[in-house]
């Protein structure tokens, strides 16, 4: 009986501290960002092209904030301020500038004899974050009705709990990004399909290997071109 009395407080303490699952409120503040998502290199004189842009707000979420458009030289390429429809007027080079909520993005456009669209794919290379090992190449490419993200056969990642693949506009956070699914394998070639019609080649600029349960980036890579 005496021994039981000794153990009882410990057992009670165990019950008290045997924790319930709590709640973390995630306040992931990002910087407003605007990405021109149209891929065009040159526009033939007399032809028109519809520019589009995606605005991401302070929490990294895409919203429908109005975008205004301008050309650095309306005599070469004119553009409708509200619709983003550009028309090549004369030979030369301009920058098309998009603005929304004080943020801006720009792309170069050549007015010439031919219309040439940009590459239908973007590439990048992983590097580890916080000294986790993630390496290898990846390619984001347009396909019919969507995109595919393909990791090269040189891809390798540290093992980790609950690793997911994301497209994001932050090199270390995934808030406002799009989750592509569980990391299929920690090495070798693998492909992820994106069928969301709101996501195109230039909507996001980073690929992340991310430990979703613990909220930790393992690896990141920037999409170039």
């Amino acid at each position: 009986m005496k021994r039981f009395n000794f153990l009882s407080p410990l057992v009670l303490l165990s019950l008290l501290v045997a924790g319930c699952i709590g709640t973390d409120i995630v306040e992931d503040i990002a910087v407003d960002q605007l990405n021109i998502s149209s891929r065009i290199i040159s526009l033939a004189i007399g032809e028109s092209f519809q520019f589009e842009a995606d605005f991401f707000n302070e929490v990294g979420v895409m919203d429908d904030s109005p975008v205004s458009w301008e050309s650095t030289d309306e005599s070469i390429v004119s553009i409708d301020n509200s619709t983003g429809v550009a028309t090549a007027v004369d030979f030369g080079e301009v920058f098309i500038i998009a603005t929304a909520n004080g943020t801006r993005d720009s792309v170069e456009l050549i007015a010439s004899n031919v219309t040439e669209l940009g590459s239908p794919e973007r590439v990048g290379q992983f590097s580890g974050v916080n000294n986790y090992s993630v390496e290898g190449d990846f390619t984001l490419a347009e396909i019919d009705n969507g995109l595919t993200l393909t990791f090269g056969d040189n891809f390798r990642s540290s093992n980790g709990p609950g690793l997911f693949v994301y497209l994001s506009n932050s090199p270390s956070r995934v808030n406002g990004g799009i989750e592509l699914g569980n990391l299929q394998s920690n090495s070798g070639e693998q492909t992820y399909t994106i069928s969301d019609p709101n996501v195109n080649l230039d909507t996001y600029n980073h690929v992340l290997v991310y430990c979703k349960p613990f909220g930790v980036a393992f690896g990141t890579g920037e999409l170039s071109n």
């Binding site: 165990s14 924790g19 699952i21 709590g22 709640t23 973390d24 409120i25 995630v26 613990f214 909220g215």
Partner: peptide, 13 residues
């Protein structure tokens, strides 16, 4: 003899 591991749920503001 008894080990319990927990992970908090994550919610937005």
């Amino acid at each position: 003899l008894f080990a319990r591991a927990t992970l908090n749920e994550q919610v937005t503001p």
